[in-house]
Design a protein around this nucleic acid. Structure first.
Length: 300
DNA sequence: AAGTCGTGGCC
DNA sequence: TGGCCAAGACT
């Protein structure tokens, strides 16, 4: 259940490793603004770093502050989102910018509690922004942290399908007391999970805490917990929604309904997807048979 | 509270 | 080749 290793030893090893192995990511640089960090955290949700970087640069150049984004139409955010996936994030980012502009004088709120109130911001993102942008000492738990702690502390290959109370307690107990050190610790554990303690083929021979790792010491037993759910794709609504939105993103003018109907022979599914996109605020019906990305300022 | 929501690269 | 996975949030 526990390595028995003193937390200080774990801290030292991980922080030392991070100081020489960390990637030089733009949102980690000292000139990154809270807004830049906020945008990066939303974009990074379920999305690899390599895909985020170029889009992040485009966004920050075009909308350097929340107020800049808020002044533009939500459809522009959806268009500039490109193929990052989960496009509702673009809409929520726009809505968050509007909220910051209207209620925070155009600034990113600095506390975890205030951040949590913003659209698209959940437990992880609130803690991450509070820590990485403002230095608040909090517990940051993402999929990387969960996996690293499952291995190092609990001796299991993977964390449970969803976070448990015990898991959060363990993570919180490992956060260094010093706020500056805590901030680095959080990003360092995430980095360790991303670069070394990866899901499929962990590089234990390069791991700075291999000799302290409960999973390693137990002989790297395979995962015994409940089956993890796969993600169906072929023929799903998600696939068709993506295709529909791609057509709309690519067009500067309203798209005739016929262009959208050409994407699928399944009329039931087609209508369901189009309706759900409209309901989500990702698509705006102009007339009876023309559609476009949302131009109105008050889409969800 | 289990399902849903994109996209593409990797082993 | 294709199932699995990636800095989750929302309902």
């Amino acid at each position: 259940m526990s390595t028995g290793a003193a937390p200080e030893r774990l801290h030292h090893r991980v922080l030392e490793w991070y100081s020489v192995s960390a990637r030089d990511l733009p949102w980690r640089r000292t000139d990154a603004t809270p807004w830049g960090i906020f945008v990066s955290e939303i974009m990074l949700q379920q999305t690899p770093v390599a895909r985020v970087a170029p889009v992040w640069h485009e966004w920050l150049a075009r909308w350097p502050t929340p107020t800049d984004l808020a002044a533009d139409a939500p459809g522009e955010a959806v268009r500039a989102w490109g193929r990052l996936g989960y496009p509702r994030r673009a809409l929520r980012l726009h809505a968050a910018a509007v909220a910051m502009t209207e209620h925070q004088a155009g600034t990113v709120p600095s506390t975890e509690t205030e951040l949590l109130a913003l659209p698209g911001v959940g437990t992880y993102t609130a803690a991450a922004v509070a820590t990485f942008a403002f230095g608040e000492r909090t517990t940051v738990v993402d999929t990387n942290v969960r996996r690293v702690l499952a291995r190092v502390i609990s001796g299991e290959e993977y964390a449970a399908p969803s976070p448990t109370r015990a898991e959060l307690t363990v993570a919180a107990g490992l956060v260094p007391l010093d706020a500056v050190e805590a901030r680095t610790w959080s990003v360092a554990v995430m980095e360790l999970g991303a670069l070394v303690c990866s899901a499929r083929s962990p590089r234990c021979s390069e791991c700075p805490v291999a000799d302290l790792c409960a999973w390693q010491l137990a002989g790297r037993p395979s995962y015994q917990g409940p089956a993890r759910k796969g993600q169906a794709w072929e023929g799903t609504d998600r696939q068709l929604r993506g295709a529909l939105l791609a057509v709309l993103r690519a067009s500067d003018v309203p798209v005739p309904r016929s262009s959208l109907e050409a994407l699928s022979d399944n009329e039931i599914q087609r209508e369901r997807c189009l309706d759900s996109l409209v309901a989500d605020g990702l698509v705006e019906p102009l007339s009876r048979d023309r559609y476009q990305l949302p131009a109105s300022r008050e889409a969800s």
